Computed example of a mutant assay.
Amino acid sequence: MAEKKVVVAGATGLVGNAALRHFGAAGGCDVLALSRRRPRELHGFRHVQIDLTDPAQCRRAATELQGATHLVYAALYEAPNLVDGWRDQDQIRTNDLMLRNLMAALEPVAPQLRHVALLQGTKAYGVHVRPLTVPAREGRSEMYEQPNFYWAQENFLRELQQGKAWHWSILRPVLIVGETIGGAMDLIPPLGVYAAMLREQGRPLDYPGGAARVSQAVDVDLLARAIAWAGEAAAARNEAFNVTNGDVFTWENVWPAIADALEMKPGNAVPLSLAQEYPKWIAPWDELRRKHNLISPGLEEFVGLSFQYADYSMRHGRTQAGPPSIVSTVKINQAGFTEMMDTEAMFRKWFGLARSSRLLP
Protein backbone atom coordinates (compact mmCIF):
# COMPACT_ATOMS: atom_id res chain seq x y z
CA MET A 1 0.00 0.00 0.00
CA ALA A 2 1.26 3.51 -0.82
CA GLU A 3 2.49 5.37 2.26
CA LYS A 4 0.68 8.51 1.04
CA LYS A 5 -3.07 8.60 0.52
CA VAL A 6 -4.42 11.87 -0.89
CA VAL A 7 -8.11 12.72 -0.73
CA VAL A 8 -9.13 15.33 -3.32
CA ALA A 9 -12.47 16.96 -2.47
CA GLY A 10 -14.10 18.79 -5.37
CA ALA A 11 -12.45 16.54 -7.96
CA THR A 12 -14.49 17.81 -10.93
CA GLY A 13 -13.58 21.46 -10.35
CA LEU A 14 -10.73 23.34 -11.93
CA VAL A 15 -8.31 22.86 -9.01
CA GLY A 16 -9.44 19.39 -7.94
CA ASN A 17 -9.10 18.13 -11.50
CA ALA A 18 -5.57 19.55 -11.75
CA ALA A 19 -4.66 17.92 -8.42
CA LEU A 20 -5.78 14.52 -9.79
CA ARG A 21 -3.64 15.11 -12.89
CA HIS A 22 -0.62 16.11 -10.81
CA PHE A 23 -0.73 13.15 -8.41
CA GLY A 24 -1.47 10.82 -11.32
CA ALA A 25 1.65 11.98 -13.16
CA ALA A 26 3.82 12.08 -10.00
CA GLY A 27 2.90 8.53 -8.97
CA GLY A 28 3.74 6.89 -5.66
CA CYS A 29 0.48 7.65 -3.90
CA ASP A 30 -3.06 6.39 -3.56
CA VAL A 31 -5.67 9.02 -4.45
CA LEU A 32 -9.38 9.18 -3.70
CA ALA A 33 -11.51 11.61 -5.73
CA LEU A 34 -14.62 13.05 -4.08
CA SER A 35 -17.30 14.94 -6.02
CA ARG A 36 -21.01 14.96 -6.83
CA ARG A 37 -20.31 14.26 -10.51
CA ARG A 38 -17.84 11.72 -11.83
CA PRO A 39 -14.68 13.43 -13.17
CA ARG A 40 -14.11 13.12 -16.92
CA GLU A 41 -10.68 11.57 -16.29
CA LEU A 42 -9.83 9.71 -13.06
CA HIS A 43 -6.17 8.97 -13.91
CA GLY A 44 -6.62 5.45 -12.55
CA PHE A 45 -7.87 6.62 -9.14
CA ARG A 46 -11.06 5.70 -7.29
CA HIS A 47 -14.06 8.02 -7.18
CA VAL A 48 -16.70 8.38 -4.48
CA GLN A 49 -19.86 10.25 -5.43
CA ILE A 50 -20.68 12.48 -2.49
CA ASP A 51 -22.58 15.62 -1.59
CA LEU A 52 -20.55 17.26 1.16
CA THR A 53 -23.57 19.21 2.41
CA ASP A 54 -25.03 15.87 3.59
CA PRO A 55 -23.36 14.62 6.81
CA ALA A 56 -24.86 11.14 6.34
CA GLN A 57 -23.19 10.77 2.93
CA CYS A 58 -19.88 11.88 4.48
CA ARG A 59 -20.20 9.30 7.28
CA ARG A 60 -20.98 6.57 4.72
CA ALA A 61 -17.75 7.45 2.89
CA ALA A 62 -15.65 6.90 6.04
CA THR A 63 -14.44 3.44 4.99
CA GLU A 64 -13.10 4.90 1.73
CA LEU A 65 -11.45 7.78 3.62
CA GLN A 66 -9.62 5.37 5.92
CA GLY A 67 -5.88 5.92 6.12
CA ALA A 68 -5.86 9.34 4.43
CA THR A 69 -2.60 11.25 4.93
CA HIS A 70 -3.38 14.38 2.89
CA LEU A 71 -6.58 16.26 2.10
CA VAL A 72 -6.74 18.68 -0.83
CA TYR A 73 -9.93 20.61 -0.11
CA ALA A 74 -10.97 22.20 -3.42
CA ALA A 75 -14.74 21.74 -3.02
CA LEU A 76 -16.83 24.85 -3.46
CA TYR A 77 -20.47 25.88 -3.43
CA GLU A 78 -21.31 28.98 -5.49
CA ALA A 79 -24.70 30.72 -5.55
CA PRO A 80 -26.51 30.94 -8.93
CA ASN A 81 -25.93 34.69 -8.95
CA LEU A 82 -22.17 34.29 -8.74
CA VAL A 83 -20.76 37.70 -7.76
CA ASP A 84 -23.61 38.69 -5.40
CA GLY A 85 -23.33 35.24 -3.83
CA TRP A 86 -19.83 36.00 -2.57
CA ARG A 87 -21.39 38.08 0.23
CA ASP A 88 -24.39 35.83 0.84
CA GLN A 89 -24.79 34.31 4.31
CA ASP A 90 -26.25 31.07 2.91
CA GLN A 91 -23.23 30.63 0.65
CA ILE A 92 -20.94 31.18 3.66
CA ARG A 93 -22.85 28.69 5.84
CA THR A 94 -22.97 26.05 3.09
CA ASN A 95 -19.22 26.17 2.43
CA ASP A 96 -18.47 26.09 6.16
CA LEU A 97 -20.77 23.09 6.63
CA MET A 98 -19.19 21.15 3.74
CA LEU A 99 -15.70 21.29 5.26
CA ARG A 100 -17.01 20.45 8.75
CA ASN A 101 -18.96 17.44 7.47
CA LEU A 102 -15.95 16.05 5.62
CA MET A 103 -13.49 16.55 8.49
CA ALA A 104 -15.95 14.96 10.95
CA ALA A 105 -15.96 11.82 8.80
CA LEU A 106 -12.28 11.84 7.83
CA GLU A 107 -10.39 12.66 11.05
CA PRO A 108 -11.53 9.64 13.12
CA VAL A 109 -10.50 7.16 10.37
CA ALA A 110 -7.25 8.91 9.42
CA PRO A 111 -4.88 8.73 12.40
CA GLN A 112 -1.95 9.23 10.00
CA LEU A 113 -3.36 12.51 8.62
CA ARG A 114 -0.45 14.88 7.95
CA HIS A 115 -1.82 17.80 5.95
CA VAL A 116 -4.94 19.68 4.88
CA ALA A 117 -4.64 22.10 1.94
CA LEU A 118 -7.40 24.73 1.81
CA LEU A 119 -8.10 27.06 -1.13
CA GLN A 120 -8.93 30.74 -0.72
CA GLY A 121 -8.20 33.60 -3.13
CA THR A 122 -7.97 37.37 -3.45
CA LYS A 123 -11.42 37.80 -1.89
CA ALA A 124 -9.43 37.32 1.34
CA TYR A 125 -8.13 40.82 0.62
CA GLY A 126 -11.56 42.16 -0.35
CA VAL A 127 -10.84 42.43 -4.08
CA HIS A 128 -14.59 42.15 -4.75
CA VAL A 129 -15.45 45.13 -2.52
CA ARG A 130 -12.46 47.51 -2.48
CA PRO A 131 -9.17 48.32 -4.24
CA LEU A 132 -6.33 46.10 -3.03
CA THR A 133 -3.42 47.44 -1.06
CA VAL A 134 -0.67 46.87 -3.66
CA PRO A 135 0.76 44.35 -3.26
CA ALA A 136 -1.63 42.44 -0.99
CA ARG A 137 0.42 40.50 1.56
CA GLU A 138 -0.48 37.52 3.72
CA GLY A 139 -0.78 38.41 7.38
CA ARG A 140 -1.10 42.11 6.63
CA SER A 141 -3.81 42.82 4.04
CA GLU A 142 -6.63 40.40 4.99
CA MET A 143 -10.13 41.85 5.14
CA TYR A 144 -11.46 39.87 8.09
CA GLU A 145 -14.31 42.35 8.62
CA GLN A 146 -15.84 41.39 5.24
CA PRO A 147 -18.16 38.34 5.59
CA ASN A 148 -16.57 35.48 3.66
CA PHE A 149 -16.68 31.68 3.88
CA TYR A 150 -12.87 31.72 3.89
CA TRP A 151 -12.86 32.96 7.48
CA ALA A 152 -15.43 30.40 8.64
CA GLN A 153 -13.40 27.54 7.16
CA GLU A 154 -10.04 28.94 8.30
CA ASN A 155 -11.21 29.49 11.90
CA PHE A 156 -12.67 25.99 12.01
CA LEU A 157 -9.41 24.42 10.76
CA ARG A 158 -7.25 26.46 13.15
CA GLU A 159 -9.33 25.33 16.14
CA LEU A 160 -9.56 21.70 14.99
CA GLN A 161 -5.80 21.45 14.45
CA GLN A 162 -4.82 22.58 17.96
CA GLY A 163 -2.64 19.89 19.58
CA LYS A 164 -2.85 17.57 16.56
CA ALA A 165 -0.03 16.04 14.53
CA TRP A 166 -1.41 17.28 11.20
CA HIS A 167 -1.00 20.75 9.72
CA TRP A 168 -2.88 22.94 7.28
CA SER A 169 -1.79 25.28 4.52
CA ILE A 170 -3.93 27.92 2.84
CA LEU A 171 -3.31 28.69 -0.83
CA ARG A 172 -4.56 31.99 -2.24
CA PRO A 173 -4.40 31.82 -6.03
CA VAL A 174 -5.31 34.76 -8.23
CA LEU A 175 -7.33 34.27 -11.47
CA ILE A 176 -7.02 30.50 -12.12
CA VAL A 177 -6.80 29.33 -15.72
CA GLY A 178 -7.18 25.69 -16.74
CA GLU A 179 -9.74 23.32 -18.14
CA THR A 180 -12.90 21.87 -16.68
CA ILE A 181 -16.53 21.34 -17.67
CA GLY A 182 -19.32 23.22 -15.90
CA GLY A 183 -17.05 25.19 -13.58
CA ALA A 184 -18.19 28.39 -11.88
CA MET A 185 -14.94 30.24 -12.49
CA ASP A 186 -13.18 28.86 -15.56
CA LEU A 187 -12.52 31.28 -18.41
CA ILE A 188 -11.50 28.89 -21.19
CA PRO A 189 -15.06 27.61 -21.97
CA PRO A 190 -16.86 31.00 -22.06
CA LEU A 191 -14.14 32.76 -24.06
CA GLY A 192 -13.74 29.74 -26.35
CA VAL A 193 -17.48 29.62 -27.07
CA TYR A 194 -17.59 33.40 -27.67
CA ALA A 195 -14.66 33.08 -30.09
CA ALA A 196 -16.34 30.17 -31.91
CA MET A 197 -19.49 32.26 -32.43
CA LEU A 198 -17.47 35.09 -33.99
CA ARG A 199 -15.41 32.74 -36.16
CA GLU A 200 -18.57 31.18 -37.60
CA GLN A 201 -19.60 34.68 -38.72
CA GLY A 202 -16.18 35.28 -40.29
CA ARG A 203 -15.41 37.96 -37.71
CA PRO A 204 -12.16 38.67 -35.85
CA LEU A 205 -11.88 38.16 -32.07
CA ASP A 206 -13.30 41.40 -30.70
CA TYR A 207 -12.50 42.24 -27.07
CA PRO A 208 -15.78 42.21 -25.09
CA GLY A 209 -14.53 43.55 -21.74
CA GLY A 210 -14.38 46.96 -20.10
CA ALA A 211 -11.55 49.33 -19.21
CA ALA A 212 -8.17 47.84 -18.33
CA ARG A 213 -6.91 46.72 -14.96
CA VAL A 214 -3.44 45.33 -14.24
CA SER A 215 -3.87 41.95 -12.59
CA GLN A 216 -2.39 38.47 -12.26
CA ALA A 217 -3.28 34.90 -13.17
CA VAL A 218 -2.07 31.42 -12.26
CA ASP A 219 -1.85 28.27 -14.37
CA VAL A 220 -3.89 25.59 -12.60
CA ASP A 221 -1.12 22.98 -13.08
CA LEU A 222 1.36 25.31 -11.37
CA LEU A 223 -1.18 25.74 -8.55
CA ALA A 224 -1.52 21.95 -8.22
CA ARG A 225 2.26 21.69 -7.83
CA ALA A 226 2.15 24.41 -5.14
CA ILE A 227 -0.55 22.44 -3.30
CA ALA A 228 1.58 19.26 -3.46
CA TRP A 229 4.63 21.22 -2.25
CA ALA A 230 2.66 22.65 0.69
CA GLY A 231 1.72 19.11 1.72
CA GLU A 232 5.37 18.20 2.35
CA ALA A 233 7.25 21.43 3.15
CA ALA A 234 7.95 22.22 6.81
CA ALA A 235 7.92 25.93 5.91
CA ALA A 236 4.29 25.62 4.75
CA ARG A 237 2.87 24.28 8.03
CA ASN A 238 -0.06 26.39 9.27
CA GLU A 239 0.74 29.18 6.81
CA ALA A 240 -1.16 31.04 4.08
CA PHE A 241 0.45 31.73 0.70
CA ASN A 242 -0.44 33.79 -2.36
CA VAL A 243 0.18 31.87 -5.62
CA THR A 244 0.56 33.52 -9.05
CA ASN A 245 2.38 32.92 -12.34
CA GLY A 246 4.90 35.56 -11.24
CA ASP A 247 4.08 38.25 -13.82
CA VAL A 248 1.21 40.70 -14.42
CA PHE A 249 -1.13 41.22 -17.37
CA THR A 250 -4.06 43.18 -18.74
CA TRP A 251 -6.66 41.49 -20.90
CA GLU A 252 -5.88 43.82 -23.78
CA ASN A 253 -2.21 42.83 -23.87
CA VAL A 254 -2.87 39.06 -23.89
CA TRP A 255 -5.80 39.29 -26.32
CA PRO A 256 -3.64 38.95 -29.47
CA ALA A 257 -2.07 35.75 -28.04
CA ILE A 258 -5.54 34.33 -27.27
CA ALA A 259 -6.70 35.18 -30.81
CA ASP A 260 -3.59 33.53 -32.25
CA ALA A 261 -4.10 30.37 -30.16
CA LEU A 262 -7.62 30.17 -31.60
CA GLU A 263 -6.33 30.86 -35.14
CA MET A 264 -8.18 34.17 -35.33
CA LYS A 265 -7.24 37.79 -35.88
CA PRO A 266 -7.63 40.10 -32.88
CA GLY A 267 -10.49 42.55 -33.42
CA ASN A 268 -11.60 45.79 -31.83
CA ALA A 269 -12.95 46.62 -28.38
CA VAL A 270 -16.66 45.77 -28.70
CA PRO A 271 -18.19 45.71 -25.19
CA LEU A 272 -20.53 42.76 -24.68
CA SER A 273 -21.97 40.96 -21.64
CA LEU A 274 -21.32 37.26 -22.28
CA ALA A 275 -23.74 36.36 -19.46
CA GLN A 276 -26.56 38.27 -21.18
CA GLU A 277 -25.65 37.18 -24.72
CA TYR A 278 -25.11 33.43 -24.28
CA PRO A 279 -28.78 32.28 -24.47
CA LYS A 280 -28.63 33.20 -28.19
CA TRP A 281 -25.69 30.83 -28.59
CA ILE A 282 -27.30 27.65 -27.18
CA ALA A 283 -28.64 26.32 -30.51
CA PRO A 284 -25.63 27.47 -32.63
CA TRP A 285 -23.31 25.78 -30.10
CA ASP A 286 -25.15 22.47 -30.55
CA GLU A 287 -24.71 22.89 -34.31
CA LEU A 288 -20.97 23.52 -33.86
CA ARG A 289 -20.65 20.44 -31.64
CA ARG A 290 -22.10 18.28 -34.40
CA LYS A 291 -20.13 19.97 -37.17
CA HIS A 292 -16.75 19.63 -35.39
CA ASN A 293 -17.49 16.34 -33.56
CA LEU A 294 -16.80 17.96 -30.18
CA ILE A 295 -16.87 16.00 -26.91
CA SER A 296 -18.06 19.04 -24.93
CA PRO A 297 -21.69 19.02 -23.74
CA GLY A 298 -24.48 21.57 -24.29
CA LEU A 299 -23.67 25.19 -23.57
CA GLU A 300 -25.02 25.56 -20.03
CA GLU A 301 -23.53 22.27 -18.86
CA PHE A 302 -20.19 23.13 -20.48
CA VAL A 303 -19.81 26.70 -19.23
CA GLY A 304 -21.73 26.68 -15.94
CA LEU A 305 -21.62 30.08 -14.20
CA SER A 306 -18.42 31.06 -16.00
CA PHE A 307 -20.11 33.50 -18.41
CA GLN A 308 -20.84 35.59 -15.30
CA TYR A 309 -17.24 35.14 -14.15
CA ALA A 310 -15.88 36.22 -17.56
CA ASP A 311 -17.92 39.45 -17.37
CA TYR A 312 -16.60 40.08 -13.85
CA SER A 313 -12.97 39.27 -14.71
CA MET A 314 -12.91 41.38 -17.87
CA ARG A 315 -14.70 44.25 -16.10
CA HIS A 316 -17.69 44.39 -18.43
CA GLY A 317 -19.38 47.79 -18.26
CA ARG A 318 -16.43 49.53 -16.56
CA THR A 319 -15.33 52.63 -18.44
CA GLN A 320 -12.55 53.78 -16.08
CA ALA A 321 -9.24 51.94 -15.70
CA GLY A 322 -9.40 49.90 -12.51
CA PRO A 323 -7.02 49.90 -9.55
CA PRO A 324 -4.31 47.23 -9.97
CA SER A 325 -5.11 43.83 -8.47
CA ILE A 326 -1.67 42.56 -7.45
CA VAL A 327 -0.55 40.26 -4.64
CA SER A 328 2.94 39.58 -3.32
CA THR A 329 4.43 36.11 -3.78
CA VAL A 330 7.56 36.85 -1.76
CA LYS A 331 6.36 34.64 1.10
CA ILE A 332 5.87 31.44 -0.92
CA ASN A 333 9.11 32.06 -2.87
CA GLN A 334 11.12 32.46 0.34
CA ALA A 335 9.46 29.35 1.80
CA GLY A 336 10.79 27.34 -1.15
CA PHE A 337 8.19 27.26 -3.94
CA THR A 338 9.65 29.35 -6.77
CA GLU A 339 7.90 28.16 -9.96
CA MET A 340 6.81 30.76 -12.48
CA MET A 341 5.02 30.81 -15.83
CA ASP A 342 4.50 33.39 -18.55
CA THR A 343 0.80 34.31 -18.51
CA GLU A 344 0.60 34.71 -22.28
CA ALA A 345 2.08 31.20 -22.69
CA MET A 346 -0.48 29.92 -20.18
CA PHE A 347 -3.43 31.20 -22.24
CA ARG A 348 -1.90 29.70 -25.39
CA LYS A 349 -1.46 26.37 -23.59
CA TRP A 350 -5.03 26.05 -22.36
CA PHE A 351 -6.80 27.26 -25.50
CA GLY A 352 -4.55 24.94 -27.52
CA LEU A 353 -5.36 21.98 -25.25
CA ALA A 354 -9.10 22.72 -25.31
CA ARG A 355 -9.02 22.60 -29.11
CA SER A 356 -6.80 19.51 -29.42
CA SER A 357 -8.99 17.62 -26.92
CA ARG A 358 -12.11 18.60 -28.94
CA LEU A 359 -13.71 20.70 -26.21
CA LEU A 360 -13.55 23.71 -28.54
CA PRO A 361 -13.63 23.81 -32.37
Score class of each variant (00 low, 15 high):
F337A: 01
V330M: 02
S328V: 06
V327E: 09
T343E: 06
S325L: 14
S357E: 13
L305T: 04
R348L: 09
F307N: 06
L353I: 14
M341A: 15
A310L: 07
R315W: 07
T338C: 08
D311Y: 11
S357I: 00
L353E: 14
H316T: 14
P323K: 12
R318Y: 08
F347H: 12
S306R: 07
F351Y: 12
N333W: 05
L353S: 11
A345D: 11
A310M: 05
M346P: 01
S356A: 13
T319S: 11
G322N: 08
M341F: 00
A345T: 02
R358G: 03
T329D: 14
L305P: 04
T338F: 00
F337H: 03
L353F: 07
F351G: 10
E344G: 13
S306K: 05
F337R: 00
Q320T: 14
R315G: 01
K349I: 05
S357Y: 01
K349E: 06
F307K: 06
V327F: 09
Q308S: 14
E344D: 10
R318K: 14
G352T: 15
F351N: 08
Y309T: 01
H316D: 07
I332G: 02
F351W: 04
R348W: 05
Y312Q: 02
S313R: 13
S357T: 15
F351P: 06
V330W: 01
D342P: 03
Q334P: 00
